[in-house]
Design a protein around this nucleic acid. Structure first.
Lengths: 135, 135
DNA sequence: TATTGTTATACTCTATAACTATA
DNA sequence: TATAGTTATAGAGTATAACAATA
């Protein structure tokens, strides 16, 4: 009973990515948020006043697919929107959004820890370097 | 304009996995097949007479989600099914299926090459080793 | 009782086309 | 004309529950 895909880096990449996502998404618990929303929150935190199109470009999320994400975050009261030039809307974290970031960061860190605990700090760092050379 | 997710291995894992999948899926061209079907074909090739439940366990595809995949492969005439014990059905490649494997392997190799060309053979091998330690 | 194949269904994420508004 | 936000829609992939058939 042989799995010939074990020889392919691509196979392990998909497996490992999905493993990491599972850890992260479970770490959100009953917060009812998932990784794309959390990723958007982190980008907003680091870039107050950013537009949703810019966030999408950064995370490779289509402009149209940003709409429901931003909608959910606004509905939760985690972000604030301020009209800019043209149709531009500058997005920033609300005070509630700032509050929740600790939890979101902890969840993403749980994913990192799950990987680091299997590789050690050196292997983790090497993996980071290699992956950054690809995409 | 900073992307704080660049610091996370998990982020790069998802990016890189999706990059590899894109290369592979584009390499299928107009064959009208995609990576889960191709992965199933490779497992069948390596394990003639395997059941679809076993394939699912190997690739972490739910039993129920194997049904349409096997259905498509049978419809194309790439696999043959032989009744076994109980509800077991042994699956093997048909002559047409054997023929197509060259194309499928070339596509998956294109994904590997895309990664290897960015890392060199040593980096590629290191990445393989690291990922195998995780999942 | 455990396993296999199956149906139905829902959810998440992604992809495309087309529209409006404004610089 | 280019960009931003939006709507609608389709597709791929995944997840769960329930059922029938057979060892």
């Amino acid at each position: 009973m042989r799995n010939p895909l074990e020889d392919l880096v691509g196979f392990h990449l998909v497996r490992t990515a999905s493993f990491g996502l599972r850890v992260v998404n479970e770490a959100y618990g009953d917060l009812g948020v998932r990784h794309p929303d959390a990723a958007v929150m982190m980008v907003i935190e680091a870039n107050p006043g950013i537009t949703q199109s810019s966030i999408g470009r950064m995370l490779k999320i289509q402009r149209s697919n940003m709409v429901p994400i931003i909608g959910r975050l606004a509905e939760r009261g985690w972000i604030e929107r301020e009209q800019g030039k043209g149709k531009r809307i500058g997005i920033s974290l609300s005070p509630e959004g700032v509050q929740i970031m600790g939890t979101l960061r902890a969840a993403s860190q749980a994913g990192e820890d799950a990987i680091a605990s299997r590789l050690g700090t050196e292997g983790y760092s090497t993996l980071h370097d290699l992956l950054r050379q690809i995409s």
